[in-house]
């Protein structure tokens, strides 16, 4: 049974925030490795970039974009809660953060696709 305290919007926001952060942390070294292939000449980079044109990787890219957007919106929310003397309606603000992040992901897919 999932505990009641782990079904609250605030907890879910914290969980998603960390998972998104983890995804970015895993992505970044791969990203740098990809850029580093350029050191072996343009062909090496192009060969790698060709791999990224597969649908699976395009989707993965969109996921990373959503993770980045989510990490930012949820981070802004925490900053707002902690540094502005304001009270939030947690369910509403977390929903807005999620919606914004997914919207960014969809926009990205439209542009890439």
């Amino acid at each position: 049974m999932i505990e009641a305290s782990h079904k609250q919007p605030g907890y879910i926001a914290a969980l998603l925030h960390r998972l998104a952060g983890l995804a970015l942390a895993i992505f970044l070294p791969i990203h740098f490795l990809a850029l580093a292939t350029a050191l072996n000449g343009a062909d090496a980079l192009d060969a790698f970039l060709n791999v990224t044109q597969t649908p699976v990787l395009k989707f993965a890219e969109a996921v990373i974009v959503v993770a980045l957007a989510l990490h930012m919106t949820l981070g802004l929310r925490v900053l707002a809660v902690e540094f502005l003397p304001m009270r939030e309606h947690t369910f509403l603000t977390v929903s807005i953060c999620l919606a914004a992040a997914i919207a960014v992901g969809l926009l990205f897919m439209l542009n890439v696709g």
């Binding site: 009641a4 609250q8 919007p9 605030g10 907890y11 925490v78 809660v81 902690e82 947690t90």
Partner: peptide
């Protein structure tokens, strides 16, 4: 800032 305290406080206090 998980807000669980605020969610459950029976006195409606928001420790967060």
């Amino acid at each position: 800032t998980h807000m669980n305290c605020t969610q459950f406080c029976p006195k409606g206090i928001a420790p967060t």
